[in-house]
Lab assay of single mutants.
Amino acid sequence: TLDDSATICRVCQKPGDLVMCNQCEFCFHLDCHLPALQDVPGEEWSCSLCHV
């Protein structure tokens, strides 16, 4: 889900339109996540760090 609060991106440390991982609660810009996300993920989304 998009989170436009004062939360910062885990990768670039900047605020903005972010998606939050449902497991670790880290936030990412779509372009900062590795691999980059093309679209906003669904409600139950886990980042690539949680899939390691």
Results as ranks from 00 to 15, higher is better:
T1H: 02
T1D: 15
T1G: 02
L2C: 09
L2K: 12
L2D: 11
D3Q: 02
D3A: 01
D3K: 13
D3I: 07
D3P: 05
D4Y: 05
D4I: 13
D4S: 13
S5G: 06
S5Q: 08
S5K: 12
S5M: 07
A6Q: 07
A6L: 09
A6V: 05
A6K: 03
T7M: 10
T7N: 09
T7F: 05
I8V: 11
I8T: 13
I8P: 06
I8M: 13
C9H: 00
C9W: 00
C9G: 00
R10F: 07
R10K: 15
R10C: 05
R10L: 02
R10P: 06
V11L: 13
V11A: 10
V11K: 09
V11D: 03
V11T: 10
V11C: 05
C12G: 06
Q13N: 14
Q13S: 13
Q13K: 12
P15C: 02
P15V: 06
P15T: 03
P15K: 09
P15Y: 08
P15S: 12
G16W: 01
G16A: 02
G16N: 15
G16K: 07
G16I: 03
G16Y: 01
G16P: 00
D17P: 02
D17F: 11
L18I: 05
L18Q: 03
L18A: 03
L18P: 01
V19L: 09
V19R: 05
V19W: 13
V19I: 13
M20I: 05
M20R: 13
M20T: 10
C21S: 00
C21V: 01
C21D: 02
C21A: 00
C21E: 04
N22F: 07
N22R: 11
N22H: 04
N22Q: 10
N22E: 14
Q23M: 05
Q23Y: 06
Q23N: 12
Q23D: 08
C24T: 01
E25M: 07
E25W: 06
E25C: 12
F26Q: 14
F26W: 05
F26G: 14
C27Y: 13
F28Q: 03
F28V: 08
F28G: 02
H29N: 03
H29K: 01
H29M: 00
H29T: 02
L30M: 07
L30G: 05
L30W: 07
D31L: 04
D31F: 03
D31S: 06
D31Q: 13
C32D: 02
C32V: 00
C32K: 01
C32E: 01
C32S: 03
L34V: 14
L34G: 14
L34W: 06
L34P: 13
L34M: 10
P35N: 08
P35T: 03
P35M: 07
A36E: 13
A36C: 02
A36G: 10
A36R: 14
A36K: 09
L37K: 04
L37H: 08
L37R: 11
Q38Y: 04
Q38C: 05
Q38E: 04
Q38N: 14
Q38I: 14
D39S: 08
D39V: 13
D39C: 08
D39L: 07
D39I: 10
D39T: 11
V40K: 08
V40R: 15
V40G: 06
V40W: 11
P41N: 10
P41M: 06
P41H: 03
P41K: 02
G42M: 11
E43F: 08
E43L: 11
E44L: 08
E44N: 09
E44P: 05
E44F: 04
W45L: 09
W45M: 07
W45P: 10
W45A: 13
S46P: 09
S46H: 10
S46E: 14
S46W: 10
S46Y: 08
C47G: 06
C47P: 03
C47K: 04
C47Q: 02
S48H: 13
S48M: 15
L49H: 15
L49E: 15
L49D: 15
C50D: 09
C50T: 05
C50F: 06
C50V: 03
C50I: 04
H51G: 06
H51T: 15
H51V: 12
H51Y: 03
V52E: 11
V52H: 04
V52F: 09
V52C: 07
